[in-house]
């Protein structure tokens, strides 16, 4: 126990001095568990997030937009891969992460349980959902766990391209025909609140926040990040003549931030608990793809084993 408390002290001192924690370093079990939960949740979000966008890949309306969307979805798969690798350094295999996902033990960002109903939703995902994700991820570049931090640096570079891709779609729609502009407004109406909820519960209600901040797994609180996202996004929408679906949204000269209406946490928790419009379908799709691919993975392993045996004999 004495040794543990000494280790814990040294650990905290490293964190306080902004020294990154690496896989082989000693770390408190709770720190490890917290990271396993957060990084794998982040990885699952990237992977499940491929689905709502993939939903419009076969209906992308131009060759250029199809190419960009395809590249973007491929990036998400890449991000998932970096993150699973970062999470694996904590001693859990990818197969286990996927099992937790399929069993409903692990979560992913609830925003991906909302449906993409028009091409404008692809714009809204890039502009709002990726826009919100970036605010969080830029902050996470400074996270205390080395592999997670490095994955974030790489991911942030690509995410800013995603956000611009989404905004470009919205710009084109807002400057297009009357129907296109309506499509953009409709997408904003549906995606604005889910994007705000992406930052999670208010600080006072957030289960993991305090410890995560102390260990610098998270660098800023949910509410701070949420406010930064709102502040930077409003003028981007207003500039295009779009209206945000919140009548209380207005600049507060005292706080130098935008005020906004109370968030509908009932909706948030309802979707988190699995009752969102897409929860079942998203998970079913992923589970089916994984199960359908089992024979391919088995074949690859069997082939590798045979090759090893051959080279031994030779």
């Amino acid at each position: 126990m004495m040794e543990d408390s000494k280790k814990l002290e040294e650990f905290q001192a490293k964190i306080d001095a902004d020294v990154k924690i690496e896989p082989k370093d000693w770390m408190p079990e709770k720190y490890r568990q917290n990271l396993i939960r957060q990084i794998s949740q982040h990885a699952h979000s990237e992977i499940i997030g491929m689905q709502p966008e993939g939903n419009w890949l076969t209906r992308a309306p131009s060759l250029r937009s199809k190419k960009i969307l395809m590249a973007k979805i491929q990036d998400e798969a890449g991000h998932g891969l970096y993150l699973y690798c970062a999470a694996e350094t904590l001693g859990v295999k990818r197969e286990q992460f996927l099992k937790w996902l399929h069993d409903g033990v692990a979560k992913y960002s609830s925003v991906f349980n909302y449906p993409t109903l028009s091409w404008a939703d692809i714009g809204a995902i890039g502009w709002l959902v990726d826009g919100a994700a970036i605010v969080n991820q830029v902050s996470l570049q400074g996270t205390s766990y080395g592999p997670y931090s490095r994955a974030m640096v790489k991911i942030c570079k690509e995410e800013s391209f995603h956000q611009r891709q989404g905004y470009e779609i919205i710009v084109n729609l807002a400057n297009g025909t009357k129907e296109q502009k309506q499509m953009a407004q409709d997408a904003l109406d549906r995606w604005w609140w889910p994007s705000i909820m992406m930052f999670g519960p208010h600080d006072a209600d957030s289960a993991h926040s305090n410890q995560s901040l102390k260990w610098k797994i998270k660098r800023e609180s949910n509410d701070e990040l949420r406010q930064r996202y709102i502040d930077k996004t409003i003028h981007q929408g207003e500039h295009l003549g779009l209206t945000f679906p919140d009548e209380n949204l207005k600049w507060n000269d005292k706080t130098k931030h935008y005020d906004y209406s109370p968030i509908d946490w009932d909706e948030f928790w309802n979707v988190v608990k699995g009752n969102g419009p897409g929860n079942k379908a998203r998970l079913a799709h992923h589970t089916k793809a994984h199960n359908d691919g089992a024979w391919v993975r088995e074949a690859a392993i069997a082939f590798q084993e045979k090759q090893k045996l051959k080279s031994k004999i030779a």
């Binding site: 491929m50 199809k66 190419k67 798969a77 359908d292 691919g293 391919v296 993975r297």
Partner: peptide, 21 residues
């Protein structure tokens, strides 16, 4: 493109999308 997010493993999702692109 239709096969997006349905690969047998993540590495294959990446590789096959690359070919599609």
């Amino acid at each position: 493109a239709e096969y997006c997010s349905a690969g047998p493993q993540l590495e294959e999702d990446l590789a096959i999308t690359n070919v599609g692109l």
